[in-house]
């Protein structure tokens, strides 16, 4: 069993501030972290590797310094890491990103399962996983809250959808996107950290993947961000002050307003 986990380096959006005068994001000094959802994808991969044997390879596409999230994944338990990086990949949207990652999975050759986190916290698109599946022409199970089993060339998983749980079975190879409900990610281990510091991580560029610049990066991206604005923050909300009794009476009025009228 070889499981590839596609991860992303993201800015810690909790640390992003807005320049109040210009209305732009201040990203300077904002730490770059492993996308939190990806920790769950990694944990799911580790669990099945530990149970079934095999290896977990962690992949990311990004600038050279995105390598740090790969080392973090190795510290948690990934066996191998692979950086997909090239100037030609810069500015990619989800189409071009998934196209490039799928080419890397194809080049790896013997991958049985690709796992991604549900979404990345910077873009929040949740599109890369299914797009990788489309590029590979593999089946997909998205929004997985629980993987029940992997056996006989199939994966059985629970999709958490509106109003309930769909129990879905898919043949392998397949792409799965993981929700936070699926597991509790392990912490990095000391041995993992020591391994991560020393590991040589290969970098594959556009020539390694045999792609055309027209299908990667900004040139290969059908969508583009044209404007960025800050959401309206002003509120003309009404503030209530007073004794707890007074406040409770007003709140009860608000909550029961429709019932009573």
């Amino acid at each position: 069993m070889r499981i590839a986990v596609a991860v992303k380096q993201v800015p810690d959006t909790a640390e992003v501030r807005i320049d109040p005068e210009r209305g732009t994001l201040i990203r300077e000094g904002v730490p770059s972290i492993l996308n939190p959802f990806d920790e769950y994808a990694l944990e799911e991969a580790f669990r099945w590797r530990d149970e079934l044997g095999g290896t977990v390879v962690v992949i990311t596409m990004g600038p050279p310094w995105a390598e740090s999230v790969l080392r973090e994944a190795v510290a948690m338990g990934a066996d191998e890491a692979l950086l997909i990086s090239d100037r030609a990949f810069a500015g990619a949207d989800t189409w071009a990103t998934s196209h490039t990652l799928a080419a890397a999975v194809t080049k790896l050759g013997d991958v049985d399962l690709v796992i991604t986190g549900k979404q990345a916290i910077d873009g929040d698109t949740a599109q890369t996983g299914p797009s990788i599946a489309a590029s590979l022409d593999w089946p997909q199970i998205t929004f997985v809250g629980k993987v029940r089993s992997i056996e006989d060339g199939h994966i059985l998983a629970e999709r958490y959808v509106e109003g309930g749980i769909e129990v879905v079975r898919s043949s392998l190879p397949a792409v799965v996107t993981i929700l936070k409900d699926a597991n509790t990610p392990r912490l990095p281990s000391l041995r993992g950290k020591m391994k991560a510091r020393k590991l040589e991580i290969p970098t594959w560029g556009i020539d390694d993947l045999g792609l055309d610049p027209a299908e990667t990066g900004l040139d290969g991206s059908p969508t583009r961000v044209v404007t960025i604005s800050t959401p309206e923050t002003s509120s003309d909300g009404e503030m209530h002050r007073g004794t707890p009794e007074e406040l409770a009476a007003v709140l009860a009025d608000l909550l029961l307003g429709e019932e009573e009228s």
């Binding site: 912490l187 990095p188 281990s189 000391l190 950290k193 020591m194 510091r197």
Partner: peptide, 18 residues
């Protein structure tokens, strides 16, 4: 050292999360 820093980071994470 890097290795002792690793210990500190891991233990801090265990402390904070668990």
């Amino acid at each position: 050292s890097d290795e002792l820093t690793d210990i500190r980071d891991i233990c801090r994470e265990i402390a904070e999360k668990y």
